[in-house]
């Protein structure tokens, strides 16, 4: 599922996905903002889990397995009720991987 392995039909879908990912980037910086305020409220926890689950389930299909892996790690940490420090680390990793994908766009 590496970007180079996808066939021509995936190229426009992948480009569209990257546009949407850029639009969604504030969601992921928002994770760090709320985590900076301390333990998560129940609805915030549920919202973060929903967003990470969605990302984990789609990114690798579009050629970004490292985003799926980072999102899955955060999703599992949320399920395990891990502490704010760990969730912050995993959110930072996820944001780095999102930025890596967005940064790669110009080289395609």
């Amino acid at each position: 599922m590496s970007p180079g392995a996808t066939d021509d039909f995936m190229a426009p879908l992948r480009a569209k996905y990257l546009v949407q990912l850029r639009e969604r980037r504030p969601e992921f910086t928002g994770f760090l903002d709320v985590l900076g305020q301390g333990p998560l409220a129940e609805d915030t926890h549920a919202d973060m889990r929903k967003k990470t689950h969605r990302l984990a389930g789609s990114a690798a299909t579009y050629g970004f397995p490292w985003i799926s892996s980072a999102a899955r790690a955060l999703e599992l940490a949320l399920d395990a009720q891990m502490d704010v420090k760990k969730l912050t680390e995993l959110s930072q990793t996820l944001l780095r991987e999102v930025d890596r994908a967005l940064g790669s766009r110009g080289t395609e």
Partner: peptide
């Protein structure tokens, strides 16, 4: 419920 998944599923199954 996810548009991303619907689109890539449809395209993959129809094209390939």
């Amino acid at each position: 419920d996810e548009e991303d998944i619907l689109q890539v599923t449809k395209m993959s199954l129809e094209t390939l």
